[in-house]
């Protein structure tokens, strides 16, 4: 079973993330990296192909720097990479991203993929919608937000947790699957993995390579636009006391004064 893993290149959450003048996410002044939540999808894919001849292809739609996200996944052990890179993609909304991904998944798998693995959410957009959109576009079953994953005899199974219940899901392959950060512990690239990644093939495709019209994507074509953004005013630090045997009492006094008890 050959697997395509979709990964996103995102601004580092530890840095001061902000917006550009055109209200799109600032990706140039903030260091980027492979979305941490996509590492779980890469790990899940590597586990599924372990001990077989099957290959894992990592696919990203993103700017120049997104090559770093592919590199990290290759260092972890993925076999090859595909980078869809085209200036026209800048500012695309989720439906447009899923359109590009759908065409790229088809091309990368020579028609129909066997399994597409994705993350719970991108750590910048945090919408958790692209997997559902991709499933819709590819006309494949959607089994998303799994905390366990098994693939056997052409069937994918896994558990999805909600507030009130744990549901067991299953679907026949091919399918679009997303996994949560509960599913595994992503590996760190080993020295050997880092060296090996240098020789792994990475293809770069433009929209033309995918037969996608530039008029279907990008900021001007987006169905939603950010019109303004405002930084949340920083919280003003309140009183900090050091416990000298009366810290708990002081805490209770604060709560009483603030009418919280």
């Amino acid at each position: 079973m050959n697997i395509v893993v979709c990964v996103k290149y995102v601004p580092d959450a530890q840095a001061d993330r902000t917006f550009n003048e055109d209200n799109t996410t600032d990706r140039s002044n903030v260091d980027g990296l492979l979305s941490e939540l996509d590492e779980y999808a890469v790990e899940a894919a590597l586990k599924l192909v372990e001990g077989s001849e099957d290959e894992v292809t990592v696919l990203t739609v993103g700017p120049d720097g997104a090559a770093d996200a592919i590199k990290k996944a290759l260092q972890m052990g993925a076999h090859k990479g595909v980078h869809v890179l085209d200036d026209a993609i800048h500012g695309s909304d989720a439906p447009a991203t899923s359109l590009v991904l759908a065409e790229a998944v088809k091309k990368a798998s020579g028609g129909t993929p066997e399994l597409v693995l994705m993350g719970l959410a991108s750590t910048d957009g945090t919408m958790s919608v692209v997997p559902a959109m991709l499933s819709e576009r590819l006309g494949l079953p959607q089994v998303t937000q799994l905390s366990t994953l098994e693939v056997a005899d052409g069937v994918v199974k896994g558990r999805r947790d909600s507030d009130t219940a744990s549901d067991s899901f299953e679907a026949p392959l091919p399918a679009v699957v997303s996994v949560t950060d509960q599913i595994n512990e992503p590996r760190y690239p080993s020295f050997k993995g880092i060296m090996a990644a240098k020789k792994k093939p990475v293809e770069t495709w433009s929209l033309a390579d995918l037969g996608v019209d530039a008029g279907q994507v990008g900021l001007d074509n987006a169905a939603t636009k950010v019109t303004s953004f405002t930084a949340r005013p920083p919280r003003e630090q309140g009183e900090i006391v050091t416990d000298e045997g009366d810290g708990g009492t002081k805490l209770a006094e604060f709560l009483a004064k603030a009418k919280l008890i």
């Binding site: 009183e239 900090i240 006391v241 050091t242 416990d243 810290g247 708990g248 009492t249 209770a252 603030a258």
Partner: peptide, 16 residues
């Protein structure tokens, strides 16, 4: 925080 206690939660919480 609006209010913070620098201390061990195992002594501060029961007292609070």
């Amino acid at each position: 925080v609006d209010f913070g206690v620098v201390g061990d939660l195992f002594t501060v919480l029961p007292q609070a």
